[in-house]
Design a protein around this nucleic acid. Sequence first.
DNA 1: TTGGAAAGTCAACAAGGCTGACATAAAATG
DNA 2: CATTTTATGTCAGCCTTGTTGACTTTCCAA
Lengths: 173, 173
Amino acid sequence: MIKQRADMVETTTRGETLLFLTDEQLRKGIEAMFFAYRGFTADPDRILADLSYGRAHHRALHFINRNQGTTVNNLLKLLGVTKQSLNRVLRSLIEDGLVESRVGLKDKRERHLYLTEKGAELERQLSEAQRARMRAAYRAAGPQAVAGFRQVLEAMMDDKIRAQYLSLMDANS
Amino acid sequence: MIKQRADMVETTTRGETLLFLTDEQLRKGIEAMFFAYRGFTADPDRILADLSYGRAHHRALHFINRNQGTTVNNLLKLLGVTKQSLNRVLRSLIEDGLVESRVGLKDKRERHLYLTEKGAELERQLSEAQRARMRAAYRAAGPQAVAGFRQVLEAMMDDKIRAQYLSLMDANS
DNA sequence: TTGGAAAGTCAACAAGGCTGACATAAAATG
DNA sequence: CATTTTATGTCAGCCTTGTTGACTTTCCAA
């Protein structure tokens, strides 16, 4: 039997576990998500502010690092913004020498994106700050909680996004 | 012994459970958080777009509903924005008859905020959309996962925010 | 060879953050 | 009572990051 949040759990006569989800309990989850996301972005935001970059730059650096050589179109799908919006961010990163854009070998229309050493350095700084908080939260909550955390987050994604997320997961590890 | 994400879990000779958190595993959590938050806001965003309101209006409606009669200052602390930013949103909500601002009885400097019937109606529509997704995610993941989800989110908040969050939880329920 | 995809650019706009400055009313304090 | 502090509102101006629409260049593929 589950100890935590036992108020949500009921076991039927057939031994099935059901969830009794009141609007109140759902609201707690909604608010937890809101406040936690603020914490989640707080540390990188502080670093970015000093460099006159924003969250959009962080996201671009993150996914380029994670998927070196990705195309602009690919990045567009991951980030879920318009190409004009991404282009503005990408242009400043390229101008500042953090990102390199190489014309595709097979398809010369495509641009493949890579982090420069300078770009990789900033990405490391940003993601290390974010990982530190995530690590602390994971340690505080414990392995069982972490598994649940990931399960609920996955279930909360849009179907198409979840498919992308899962294929990303497969690709790297 | 925990089945899910068993790769993160190790048991010592003294029976303690430890977490082995690789950067890779932390990154998965970070990306899950990013993609899940998109899903989390997607449904209300669609409703708001038709009304030429934004996420900021939703947040204001949510916390006014949750805490009827709250003061502007109170709301400011919860939302973590400047009064100028909140004021712009609040003004439009008041002009459109969704929110009512009453001068404080005890302290006449304070404005106490209430949802009108119209405001409550929109809030219900927005939060029902958001709850529906949360409910589906909770059901899909199961009660144990939900408990873990909440634990990790709480651990991820800034200390001050967590205190606010927890006192909100106590107050209502 | 022609259609369409990929990429980039320009312009214009909006939401929603921010800072700074200032006004007003009322409470709190000496 | 005089002064200071607090709560709120408002004006102006700025930035980031999202949007749409129109248009160009390149170049793959049917």
